[in-house]
Design a protein around this nucleic acid. Structure first.
Lengths: 106, 106
DNA sequence: AAAATGTTTGGCTAAATGGCAAAATAGCCA
DNA sequence: TGGCTATTTTGCCATTTAGCCAAACATTTT
């Protein structure tokens, strides 16, 4: 059963990597195509070192690929299914909205 | 643009809630139907209080609903799309595997 | 060499995690 | 009712992890 533990750990790593507002913002932007770190930095607005670290988290989780061309490093999605991820999350939030306006959560 | 920040925060909350091995294990088990806390405790093997806290995280994120019947509290998925989530994560991990055996991650 | 673009490291604060003990809740039974 | 048991949740504490800023470092371009 220890193999399973390992699998859950890996899966959780992917989800945890996505579970941060700035990282989500970058992932969504990258759906349109690759971007350099400088673009993402302008998008999110945090310190460059912070952005770089967030990108490293996503890279280590296997969600992003990086490629250096000249001075810049470009990041792109390695996985096509991220969009579906977002749809699912929206489902959660919408259901939350509905039940908040009608009744309780049971 | 502050509304967007809020949206990203809420989305991230859902993903972060799912991003823990024990919580993933419980979510997967709950796909088959509702379970009481005691079942989930046996499944995961952690201390009862720890399980209860993990369940609270998932409940607060809007992923689970709880209902007390008699002595026991039953938890169930509030969202149908969790299965798709897992499929997506698997895609990530498989692609990882493939590229690990062939070449680098670019 | 100087400038531009990222990454790494150190230090600091905040948040997450896990376990134990105590409290809350519900059922049972004399 | 009063007490006893079973099931969860809460509070509290210690430990670990995440996040951020600033400074130092590395690489490529000019």
């Amino acid at each position: 059963m220890n193999v399973d533990r390992q699998r859950y750990r890996r899966r959780a790593e992917v989800l945890k990597a996505m579970g941060h507002p700035s990282r989500l913002m970058m992932l969504e932007a990258l759906q349109a195509g690759e971007m350099c770190v400088c673009d993402l930095q302008r998008l999110v607005g945090s310190d460059m070192s912070t952005i770089s670290k967030h990108l490293a988290v996503l890279r280590n989780a296997g969600i992003l690929a990086d490629e250096k061309r000249g001075l810049q490093v470009f990041y792109r999605l390695r996985v096509p299914c991220v969009t579906r991820f977002f749809e699912c999350v929206e489902e959660v939030l919408e259901q939350d909205q509905q039940e908040a306006s009608t009744g309780s959560r049971r």
